[in-house]
Design a protein around this nucleic acid. Structure first.
Lengths: 137, 137
DNA sequence: CTGTGTGCAAACTCTTTGCATAAGT
DNA sequence: ACTTATGCAAAGAGTTTGCACACAG
């Protein structure tokens, strides 16, 4: 799932985004390691850590640009933090409240059956299943 | 599903919450009209509107107390706002992004099949299915 | 009376925005 | 050069907290 710099630059251009230093660097962090779920702050931290001095505001802007371009999906899992998911295809999540951690549900399993009709004039945009976990006592 | 004042007072006491003016009033607003999904601000507005001068802080406190008492559930649907759901039993939701509106999925239908094993030492707390809707084009 | 609840305003967290500077094509 | 992106700091939204006063038991 990892992508070369050139590939990333092309992807950005196809999305109408100029491949700036920051965007390329952030895209590399996001897409180099397979599926990831992270908050803006997490990515900001990683960027700084790996020597790319982006501002947090730019990380937010960039994440939203990527989301609009269909490269990311927003994950509504918890009230305060917004998580971004690098896997834009249909899949579902475990959420561990104590650690604020999101884990993919293995695709093999879970299926949503017997989907009801949406109300008049509406269509399904997507379905999010969040399985909240707690530590066994 | 509507409840008398006395019934509400008893429910609060059973939960270890003193049935104060504000708590009784808020509980009546919450539970008088069947299943509801609302944000703290919505409830605050309704309270003021119906002549109960609670502060927003008290609404938040009260909503969390009710949640801890199992009378409400928190609904993770969208990044910014926290929705509280008066229906604490297992059921799922439509979410209409444009209007920030949450609607119950008729219980009859949808079922989640083939639930995968949670990771080691974890158990399922609950499952939230959010069906995001958009207007048909 | 005693202790818990409430209101207010201030603090906090996460996120967005405005504007001058910097970088991409 | 011309245009779009970035950084910073400040503003915004939603939520939480601390402390003095009010109320329930």
């Amino acid at each position: 799932m990892s992508q070369s710099g050139a590939e990333i630059r092309r992807r950005l251009q196809d999305a109408g985004l100029r491949p700036t230093r920051q965007r390329v660097a952030l895209a590399e962090l996001l897409f180099a390691k397979g599926d990831r779920h992270l908050a803006a702050e997490d990515l900001h931290f990683e960027a700084i850590e790996s020597g790319v001095p982006v501002s947090l505001a730019t990380v937010y802007n960039t994440l939203h640009q990527f989301t609009n371009a269909g490269m990311l999906r927003i994950l509504a899992v918890e009230g305060s933090r917004t998580y971004f998911d690098t896997n834009t295809s249909d899949h579902h999540h475990f959420y561990i409240e104590e650690e604020g951690e999101v884990v993919d549900v293995p695709v093999s399993g879970l299926r949503v059956e017997n989907l009801p009709e949406p109300p008049e004039g509406m269509e399904v945009a997507n379905i999010d299943v969040v399985i909240r976990l707690r530590r066994k006592r």
